[in-house]
Protein backbone atom coordinates (compact mmCIF):
# COMPACT_ATOMS: atom_id res chain seq x y z
CA UNK A 1 0.00 0.00 0.00
CA UNK A 2 1.70 3.20 -1.13
CA UNK A 3 0.91 6.57 -2.62
CA UNK A 4 3.16 9.19 -4.21
CA UNK A 5 2.55 12.83 -3.39
CA UNK A 6 4.34 16.15 -3.06
CA UNK A 7 4.80 17.26 0.51
CA UNK A 8 6.74 19.54 2.82
CA UNK A 9 9.16 17.83 5.16
CA UNK A 10 7.32 19.02 8.26
CA UNK A 11 4.06 17.65 6.92
CA UNK A 12 5.67 14.35 6.00
CA UNK A 13 6.62 13.92 9.64
CA UNK A 14 3.04 14.59 10.69
CA UNK A 15 1.59 12.20 8.14
CA UNK A 16 4.00 9.46 9.19
CA UNK A 17 2.85 9.87 12.78
CA UNK A 18 -0.75 9.50 11.68
CA UNK A 19 0.20 6.42 9.63
CA UNK A 20 1.60 4.60 12.65
CA UNK A 21 -1.33 5.39 14.88
CA UNK A 22 -0.14 8.44 16.78
CA UNK A 23 -3.37 10.05 17.94
CA UNK A 24 -2.04 12.37 20.60
CA UNK A 25 0.02 15.36 19.59
CA UNK A 26 0.94 18.24 21.88
CA UNK A 27 2.88 21.29 20.73
CA UNK A 28 3.67 24.95 21.00
CA UNK A 29 4.32 27.17 17.99
CA UNK A 30 7.89 27.92 16.92
CA UNK A 31 9.51 28.52 13.54
CA UNK A 32 10.71 26.59 11.52
CA UNK A 33 8.37 23.77 12.50
CA UNK A 34 5.00 25.56 12.43
CA UNK A 35 3.77 23.58 9.42
CA UNK A 36 3.96 20.45 11.52
CA UNK A 37 1.86 21.85 14.36
CA UNK A 38 -0.75 23.16 11.94
CA UNK A 39 -0.76 19.88 10.03
CA UNK A 40 -1.33 17.90 13.22
CA UNK A 41 -4.15 20.22 14.27
CA UNK A 42 -5.91 19.55 10.99
CA UNK A 43 -5.20 15.83 10.76
CA UNK A 44 -6.07 15.05 14.37
CA UNK A 45 -9.43 16.65 13.71
CA UNK A 46 -9.92 14.41 10.70
CA UNK A 47 -8.89 11.17 12.39
CA UNK A 48 -10.51 11.87 15.74
CA UNK A 49 -7.23 12.25 17.61
CA UNK A 50 -6.10 14.75 20.23
CA UNK A 51 -4.33 17.95 19.34
CA UNK A 52 -3.53 20.39 22.11
CA UNK A 53 -1.74 23.66 21.62
CA UNK A 54 -0.16 23.72 25.02
CA UNK A 55 0.72 26.75 27.13
CA UNK A 56 4.44 26.02 26.75
CA UNK A 57 6.88 23.40 25.57
CA UNK A 58 7.23 22.28 29.18
CA UNK A 59 3.52 21.57 29.26
CA UNK A 60 3.61 19.90 25.84
CA UNK A 61 6.29 17.40 26.83
CA UNK A 62 4.49 16.82 30.13
CA UNK A 63 1.33 15.99 28.21
CA UNK A 64 3.40 13.61 26.11
CA UNK A 65 4.63 12.07 29.38
CA UNK A 66 1.02 11.57 30.46
CA UNK A 67 -0.22 10.18 27.16
CA UNK A 68 2.76 7.82 26.90
CA UNK A 69 2.12 6.67 30.48
CA UNK A 70 -1.37 5.70 29.40
CA UNK A 71 0.09 3.61 26.58
CA UNK A 72 -0.62 5.87 23.61
CA UNK A 73 1.68 6.67 20.73
CA UNK A 74 2.37 10.34 21.18
CA UNK A 75 4.51 13.09 19.73
CA UNK A 76 5.62 16.67 20.19
CA UNK A 77 7.73 18.92 18.01
CA UNK A 78 9.66 22.13 18.37
CA UNK A 79 12.90 23.89 17.55
CA UNK A 80 15.97 24.85 19.64
CA UNK A 81 14.51 27.19 22.29
CA UNK A 82 11.48 24.97 22.74
CA UNK A 83 13.55 21.80 22.78
CA UNK A 84 15.57 23.30 25.62
CA UNK A 85 12.36 23.72 27.61
CA UNK A 86 11.39 20.14 26.84
CA UNK A 87 14.58 18.77 28.31
CA UNK A 88 13.05 18.49 31.77
CA UNK A 89 10.31 16.26 30.42
CA UNK A 90 12.63 14.27 28.17
CA UNK A 91 14.80 13.39 31.15
CA UNK A 92 11.72 12.25 33.10
CA UNK A 93 10.48 10.26 30.10
CA UNK A 94 13.85 8.56 29.77
CA UNK A 95 13.91 7.85 33.49
CA UNK A 96 10.38 6.49 33.51
CA UNK A 97 11.14 4.43 30.38
CA UNK A 98 8.36 5.78 28.24
CA UNK A 99 8.24 5.70 24.46
CA UNK A 100 7.51 8.89 22.54
CA UNK A 101 8.71 10.86 19.55
CA UNK A 102 10.16 14.36 19.77
CA UNK A 103 10.90 16.33 16.63
CA UNK A 104 13.52 19.06 16.59
CA UNK A 105 13.46 21.12 13.41
CA UNK A 106 16.71 22.85 14.20
CA UNK A 107 17.41 26.55 13.93
CA UNK A 108 20.48 28.57 14.87
CA UNK A 109 21.41 29.45 18.43
CA UNK A 110 22.50 30.05 21.12
CA UNK A 111 19.61 31.83 22.81
CA UNK A 112 16.92 32.98 20.48
CA UNK A 113 19.43 32.91 17.60
CA UNK A 114 17.39 33.13 14.47
CA UNK A 115 14.96 31.03 12.51
CA UNK A 116 17.23 29.89 9.70
CA UNK A 117 18.22 26.26 9.44
CA UNK A 118 21.19 25.02 11.45
CA UNK A 119 22.58 21.87 13.04
CA UNK A 120 23.48 23.52 16.29
CA UNK A 121 21.68 21.08 18.60
CA UNK A 122 23.77 17.97 17.85
CA UNK A 123 25.43 18.01 21.27
CA UNK A 124 22.13 18.49 23.06
CA UNK A 125 20.45 15.74 21.06
CA UNK A 126 23.11 13.07 21.27
CA UNK A 127 24.06 13.49 24.93
CA UNK A 128 20.58 13.03 26.32
CA UNK A 129 20.03 16.74 26.55
CA UNK A 130 18.71 17.03 30.08
CA UNK A 131 20.00 16.00 33.48
CA UNK A 132 20.94 12.47 34.37
CA UNK A 133 22.58 9.50 32.75
CA UNK A 134 20.52 8.72 29.67
CA UNK A 135 20.29 8.77 25.90
CA UNK A 136 17.55 9.26 23.40
CA UNK A 137 17.44 7.60 20.00
CA UNK A 138 18.44 10.26 17.48
CA UNK A 139 17.49 9.90 13.82
CA UNK A 140 18.67 12.38 11.20
CA UNK A 141 16.68 12.49 7.95
CA UNK A 142 18.15 14.17 4.87
CA UNK A 143 15.18 14.43 2.53
CA UNK A 144 11.41 14.49 2.70
CA UNK A 145 11.13 10.76 2.13
CA UNK A 146 13.31 10.16 5.15
CA UNK A 147 11.38 12.70 7.19
CA UNK A 148 8.52 10.26 6.66
CA UNK A 149 10.40 6.97 6.89
CA UNK A 150 12.44 7.85 9.94
CA UNK A 151 9.37 9.09 11.77
CA UNK A 152 7.80 5.67 11.22
CA UNK A 153 10.97 4.09 12.51
CA UNK A 154 11.21 6.48 15.46
CA UNK A 155 7.80 5.39 16.75
CA UNK A 156 8.66 1.75 16.33
CA UNK A 157 12.04 1.95 18.02
CA UNK A 158 10.68 4.10 20.84
CA UNK A 159 8.11 1.43 21.61
CA UNK A 160 10.57 -1.42 21.16
CA UNK A 161 13.12 -0.01 23.60
CA UNK A 162 10.76 2.05 25.74
CA UNK A 163 12.75 5.21 25.30
CA UNK A 164 12.24 8.63 23.71
CA UNK A 165 13.20 8.95 20.06
CA UNK A 166 14.29 12.26 18.63
CA UNK A 167 13.97 13.18 14.99
CA UNK A 168 16.70 15.73 14.33
CA UNK A 169 15.84 17.72 11.24
CA UNK A 170 16.45 21.35 10.34
CA UNK A 171 14.54 24.26 8.89
CA UNK A 172 15.50 23.46 5.31
CA UNK A 173 14.33 19.86 5.53
CA UNK A 174 11.17 20.96 7.32
CA UNK A 175 10.18 23.44 4.68
CA UNK A 176 11.38 21.87 1.45
CA UNK A 177 8.80 20.22 -0.76
CA UNK A 178 9.71 16.94 -2.43
CA UNK A 179 7.93 13.93 -3.87
CA UNK A 180 7.22 11.37 -1.23
CA UNK A 181 5.98 7.80 -1.23
CA UNK A 182 3.54 7.29 1.61
CA UNK A 183 3.64 3.70 2.78
CA UNK A 184 2.75 1.60 5.74
CA UNK A 185 5.74 0.04 7.41
CA UNK A 186 5.93 -3.68 8.07
CA UNK A 187 7.78 -3.69 11.35
CA UNK A 188 7.66 -6.86 13.42
CA UNK A 189 4.89 -6.85 16.03
CA UNK A 190 5.58 -5.28 19.40
CA UNK A 191 4.59 -6.68 22.79
CA UNK A 192 1.51 -5.13 24.43
CA UNK A 193 2.17 -2.25 26.80
CA UNK A 194 1.28 -4.10 29.98
CA UNK A 195 3.25 -1.52 31.97
CA UNK A 196 0.94 1.36 31.03
CA UNK A 197 -1.48 2.92 33.51
CA UNK A 198 -5.22 2.56 33.09
CA UNK A 199 -7.48 -0.28 32.03
CA UNK A 200 -6.62 -2.03 35.27
CA UNK A 201 -8.28 -5.41 35.46
CA UNK A 202 -7.13 -8.16 37.80
CA UNK A 203 -3.59 -6.96 38.01
CA UNK A 204 -1.52 -5.15 40.63
CA UNK A 205 -1.13 -1.40 40.29
CA UNK A 206 1.20 -0.03 37.64
CA UNK A 207 3.60 2.75 38.47
CA UNK A 208 5.19 5.11 35.97
CA UNK A 209 7.88 7.12 37.66
CA UNK A 210 11.46 8.24 37.30
CA UNK A 211 12.13 8.42 41.02
CA UNK A 212 14.02 5.52 42.58
CA UNK A 213 14.20 5.94 46.32
CA UNK A 214 15.74 3.32 48.52
CA UNK A 215 19.23 2.00 48.81
CA UNK A 216 20.74 0.89 45.52
CA UNK A 217 17.54 1.19 43.50
CA UNK A 218 18.69 4.08 41.36
CA UNK A 219 22.04 2.46 40.69
CA UNK A 220 20.28 -0.70 39.56
CA UNK A 221 17.94 1.36 37.41
CA UNK A 222 20.86 3.09 35.74
CA UNK A 223 22.41 -0.28 34.98
CA UNK A 224 19.09 -1.46 33.51
CA UNK A 225 18.99 1.58 31.26
CA UNK A 226 22.57 1.00 30.17
CA UNK A 227 21.74 -2.56 29.19
CA UNK A 228 19.01 -1.22 26.93
CA UNK A 229 21.39 1.37 25.47
CA UNK A 230 23.90 -1.42 24.78
CA UNK A 231 21.20 -3.36 22.92
CA UNK A 232 20.40 -0.30 20.86
CA UNK A 233 24.07 0.25 20.06
CA UNK A 234 24.32 -3.36 18.94
CA UNK A 235 21.17 -3.48 16.80
CA UNK A 236 20.20 -0.09 15.57
CA UNK A 237 23.18 1.70 14.06
CA UNK A 238 22.21 3.08 10.68
CA UNK A 239 24.22 4.96 8.08
CA UNK A 240 24.52 5.33 4.33
CA UNK A 241 27.63 5.27 2.17
CA UNK A 242 28.11 6.82 -1.24
CA UNK A 243 31.27 6.14 -3.29
CA UNK A 244 33.22 5.10 -0.24
CA UNK A 245 34.80 1.97 -1.80
CA UNK A 246 37.78 3.74 -3.28
CA UNK A 247 37.55 7.09 -1.50
CA UNK A 248 40.75 8.88 -0.56
CA UNK A 249 38.88 11.61 1.25
CA UNK A 250 35.79 10.65 3.19
CA UNK A 251 33.15 13.27 3.82
CA UNK A 252 31.10 12.74 6.96
CA UNK A 253 27.85 14.69 7.22
CA UNK A 254 24.21 14.30 8.24
CA UNK A 255 20.96 15.96 7.28
CA UNK A 256 21.11 19.02 5.07
CA UNK A 257 24.93 19.09 5.19
CA UNK A 258 24.89 15.61 3.71
CA UNK A 259 22.81 16.89 0.78
CA UNK A 260 25.50 19.49 0.11
CA UNK A 261 28.17 16.83 0.43
CA UNK A 262 26.38 14.55 -2.01
CA UNK A 263 26.56 17.36 -4.55
CA UNK A 264 30.24 17.76 -3.76
CA UNK A 265 30.86 14.05 -4.26
CA UNK A 266 29.20 14.08 -7.69
CA UNK A 267 31.03 17.22 -8.74
CA UNK A 268 34.35 16.11 -7.26
CA UNK A 269 34.16 12.69 -8.90
CA UNK A 270 33.53 14.42 -12.26
CA UNK A 271 36.75 16.35 -11.62
CA UNK A 272 38.58 13.12 -10.86
CA UNK A 273 38.67 13.46 -7.08
CA UNK A 274 38.26 10.18 -5.24
CA UNK A 275 35.81 11.28 -2.58
CA UNK A 276 32.93 9.53 -0.87
CA UNK A 277 30.26 10.34 1.67
CA UNK A 278 29.54 8.62 4.94
CA UNK A 279 26.16 9.74 6.24
CA UNK A 280 25.17 8.76 9.78
CA UNK A 281 21.41 8.23 9.96
CA UNK A 282 21.39 7.36 13.63
CA UNK A 283 23.34 10.08 15.44
CA UNK A 284 22.81 8.14 18.62
CA UNK A 285 23.81 5.38 18.46
CA UNK A 286 26.66 6.83 16.40
CA UNK A 287 28.05 4.54 13.67
CA UNK A 288 31.55 4.51 15.15
CA UNK A 289 32.62 1.03 14.09
CA UNK A 290 31.75 1.52 10.44
CA UNK A 291 33.64 4.77 10.46
CA UNK A 292 36.73 3.11 11.91
CA UNK A 293 36.84 0.68 8.99
CA UNK A 294 37.03 3.64 6.62
CA UNK A 295 39.50 5.56 8.73
CA UNK A 296 41.99 2.77 8.23
CA UNK A 297 41.80 3.13 4.44
CA UNK A 298 41.30 6.82 3.63
CA UNK A 299 43.90 9.60 3.58
CA UNK A 300 41.71 11.94 5.54
CA UNK A 301 38.21 12.63 6.75
CA UNK A 302 36.35 15.89 6.27
CA UNK A 303 33.40 16.52 8.56
CA UNK A 304 30.89 19.07 7.28
CA UNK A 305 28.29 20.56 9.59
CA UNK A 306 26.03 23.56 9.94
CA UNK A 307 27.58 24.49 13.28
CA UNK A 308 31.04 25.17 14.68
CA UNK A 309 31.96 21.51 15.04
CA UNK A 310 29.83 19.15 17.07
CA UNK A 311 29.54 15.77 15.33
CA UNK A 312 33.22 16.09 14.51
CA UNK A 313 33.89 15.27 18.16
CA UNK A 314 32.16 11.91 17.76
CA UNK A 315 34.13 11.28 14.59
CA UNK A 316 37.39 11.98 16.45
CA UNK A 317 36.32 9.70 19.30
CA UNK A 318 35.59 6.92 16.85
CA UNK A 319 38.64 7.31 14.67
CA UNK A 320 41.12 7.73 17.51
CA UNK A 321 43.85 9.27 15.39
CA UNK A 322 43.84 6.63 12.65
CA UNK A 323 43.70 9.38 10.03
CA UNK A 324 43.67 13.19 9.95
CA UNK A 325 40.27 14.77 10.49
CA UNK A 326 39.34 18.14 9.05
CA UNK A 327 36.28 20.20 9.64
CA UNK A 328 34.21 22.64 7.66
CA UNK A 329 31.30 24.31 9.40
CA UNK A 330 28.87 27.13 8.77
CA UNK A 331 27.01 28.24 11.87
CA UNK A 332 24.14 30.62 12.49
CA UNK A 333 22.08 29.83 9.41
CA UNK A 334 24.99 29.66 6.97
CA UNK A 335 24.87 26.84 4.45
CA UNK A 336 28.08 25.13 3.33
CA UNK A 337 28.48 25.11 -0.45
CA UNK A 338 29.85 22.36 -2.69
CA UNK A 339 32.65 24.71 -3.68
CA UNK A 340 33.72 25.26 -0.08
CA UNK A 341 33.61 21.53 0.51
CA UNK A 342 35.70 20.72 -2.56
CA UNK A 343 38.26 23.34 -1.61
CA UNK A 344 38.60 21.71 1.78
CA UNK A 345 38.89 18.29 0.14
CA UNK A 346 41.79 19.46 -1.98
CA UNK A 347 43.52 20.86 1.10
CA UNK A 348 43.20 17.45 2.70
CA UNK A 349 44.77 15.57 -0.20
Amino acid sequence: MSEKILMKGNEAVGEAAIYVGCRHYFGYPITPQNELTAYMARRMNEVGGTFIQSESEIAAISMVFGAASAGARTMTSSSGPGISLKQEGISYIAGAQLPCVIVNVMRGGPGLGNISAAQSDYFQATRGGGHGDYYTLVLAPYNVQEMFDLTLLAFHMADQYRMPALLLADGILGQMREPLILHRPDFPPLPPKTWAVGRMKDRPMNLISSIRLGEGRLEAHNHDLQRIYDEVRKNEVRFEETHTEDAEVLLVAFGTSARVCLGAVTEGRAQGLRIGLFRPITLWPFPSEALVRHAEKVRSILVVEMNMGQMVEDVRLAVEGRCPIHFHGRPGGGLPTTREVLEKVREGL
Partner: peptide
Protein backbone atom coordinates in the same frame (compact mmCIF):
# COMPACT_ATOMS: atom_id res chain seq x y z
CA UNK B 1 -3.54 0.44 45.14
CA UNK B 2 -4.45 2.23 41.93
CA UNK B 3 -2.20 3.12 39.03
CA UNK B 4 0.18 5.95 39.75
CA UNK B 5 2.32 8.32 37.72
CA UNK B 6 5.12 10.55 39.00
CA UNK B 7 5.32 13.82 37.06
CA UNK B 8 8.05 16.44 37.23
CA UNK B 9 7.73 19.21 39.82
CA UNK B 10 4.58 21.20 39.09
CA UNK B 11 3.68 19.46 35.84
CA UNK B 12 0.86 17.39 37.30
CA UNK B 13 -2.00 19.13 35.51
CA UNK B 14 -0.25 18.80 32.14
CA UNK B 15 0.61 15.14 32.73
CA UNK B 16 -2.95 14.53 33.91
CA UNK B 17 -4.14 16.17 30.70
CA UNK B 18 -2.13 13.72 28.62
CA UNK B 19 -3.47 10.75 30.59
CA UNK B 20 -7.05 11.92 30.54
CA UNK B 21 -7.05 12.56 26.80
CA UNK B 22 -5.98 8.96 26.25
CA UNK B 23 -8.31 7.50 28.88
Amino acid sequence: EWDMVGPAHGRGPAVATGIKRVL
